[in-house]
Amino acid sequence: MIRKDLLALANDISIEDLLIEHPIVADFLANLRLDNIPKQLPLSLAIEEMDEDILQEFGLDKFGVLLSFCEFMETFSTAKNQNPAVATLTIIGGLNKSGEPENISLTISSGEIVSIVGPTGSGKSRLLNDIECLAQGDTPTMRRILVNGVELDDLQRFEMEGKLVAQLSQNMNFVMDLTVREFLYLHAKSRLTVDAEQVVEKCFLGANALAGEKFLLDTKITQLSGGQSRALMIADTAYISNSPIVLIDEIENAGIDRRQAIELLAQREKLVFISTHDPLLALGADKRIVIKNGGIIKILEITQAEKQSLNAIEELDNILQNLRHRLREGDQITVDLLKA
């Protein structure tokens, strides 16, 4: 929307109608403590009835209200909130902790899954950080990250602030005191999702498909188990959060179907990086980055042999999952349960 159209919203349409068309206007009014202005008038006329003293507390006069209204609507117009499309991401090697060059260049396309493996403290998180800030040879590792094959200048990096990368880690919690439904709606609203109802429903079903134990739309998010929380976070990242890149830091043993979770993200055309020690996740990826001493020492493509062993690993994993399930149900564990 251009300024003229925005001003038309303030001049020609009653606040009542404006609220129906753009529910977010309610937030604008609440932020300036203007919830009680006459709603049958357009904003430009209604502000004539406003208390100047209140406006002054916000550093505004009547004209200022109109200006900030325009800015507000501009900020939350859908065009401005489009996420940059990322078809490929290229990592160009820098230096390891000893200052030796990494000599690698790796291009990953959307829908691909890449795992990052290496001993604790070897520099896996550092690589995730480089990706997050779109390093251009200016971080300690000197790595460069290209988006769609091109280098980015600082302005472009700032433009993409926070829109490119969604993160998921074992330490994350829900802290809001909301039900699953309220929470998903709130998130959908903040992403300016048009068909919120549908998206919330999809996301809820998706999360429950991943979670070991089912939960309801009316469950409080703070009451979800670790596995349920992780499942909801993954489904939310897949369906609501629009970031094209997902960085995952350790989600093993969370009581969710990990492989299915990662596949869900990849299906949504996300570019997925998983830092992990979990063989099932590491081998579930198309490519595997191996890190040692702060540097990438090799990049492995999954081999046929690994793909075959993946099935065996999955069986082992199923045995363990089954044991967990039996324990939870109060069963006795027998030797038979250890067989595939």
Binding site: F76, A166, N173, R191, D236, S241
Partner: peptide, 17 residues
């Protein structure tokens, strides 16, 4: 780092408001 990605996004949205 200890809250979910969704909550981060909602928080950033509140700031932008």
């Amino acid at each position: 780092d200890i809250i979910s990605q969704a909550e981060r996004e909602v928080f950033a949205f509140s700031i932008k408001q």
